[in-house]
Computed example of a mutant assay.
Amino acid sequence: MKLTGPVPGGPCWAGLATSDVPAARAFYAGLFGWRSETDPRPEAGGYTTARIGEDAVAALSPLRDPGQLPAWTLSFATEDADASAGAVRSAGGTVLVDPLDVLGRGRFAVAADPAGAVFALWQARGFPGAGRFNAPGTLGWTELRTSDPRGALTFYRAVFGWSVDASERFTHWGVAGADFGGVKEQDDDEQAETPPHWLPYFTVSDTEYTVARALTAGGEPLAPPVRVPGGPCVATLHDPQGAGFGVLAP
């Protein structure tokens, strides 16, 4: 990822909703070295911030709704959450949670693109988002898995103004040309198992070693380590509660 920190339109945060916060804390601590702190205020609802050193890098929280499945959600920075929510609606998406203020830290909304991939909007006030990208244990890439890549290009460019770098093999998203993610079309088998979604990739020093540690700790493989031509070694996994994520070694 060519971004080094949150910028308007770019990814700024990754949050995990999980059925077992203590187990998830232990799993990701062993995998990435995260040190986690739970906000003790009742209104925070068990929100837990994971850190590398002093930098906040991700969050874990309990599931909120009956039937909700464990999953990672990516947040994208905006200077005006209400305006961005309006842009989502105008472009054919759905606002699932209307913009609301969060404990003086920012303004937050949850949306879905026309194919159903869920993401969040974050208007920073006291909290800008992740304090570090591209270092071991931190967000290093984002990927949209979707049944409608062409429609996704139209939607996200309309909402965020992203730049698009497309080739025969890959399509990359960027903010003013600084790539931070990509899009991958789901095949029929993947669509049957998993609806369209955003997948965070966390940077590691050694992909194969990290995958082995994850499997030993109760994770499950989705795609084995593979070297992207001219790029990183990547793999995708489920954590023990079933949330999907990726790892990459530059």
Rank of each mutant, 00 (worst) to 15 (best):
S19Y: 01
G174R: 08
A58R: 07
A83N: 05
G46V: 06
P196S: 10
R132P: 10
A56E: 14
P128G: 12
G116W: 02
P200W: 07
L153T: 10
H172L: 14
T73Y: 04
Y209R: 14
G181D: 00
D189N: 12
T236I: 01
S90E: 13
D189H: 11
R145V: 10
A178I: 11
G161Q: 05
T38F: 07
A130P: 11
P240Y: 02
F108H: 15
A26D: 14
P70Q: 01
F202I: 10
G182Q: 06
R213P: 09
T48F: 05
P42H: 06
V57S: 05
G230A: 09
G86E: 07
E43F: 04
G174H: 10
Y28I: 06
D20P: 07
A91T: 06
V102L: 10
A87W: 00
D55K: 15
G246D: 10
P8Q: 08
F108T: 12
F133M: 10
L139G: 06
S19L: 00
Q186P: 03
A117S: 04
L3Y: 09
W34F: 04
F27A: 09
T154W: 07
P196R: 01
D165S: 12
S36A: 15
A178N: 11
F108P: 03
L96N: 12
D239T: 08
P225G: 06
V102W: 08
D113V: 03
Q241G: 00
G246R: 09
A58H: 08
A85Q: 00
V21L: 01
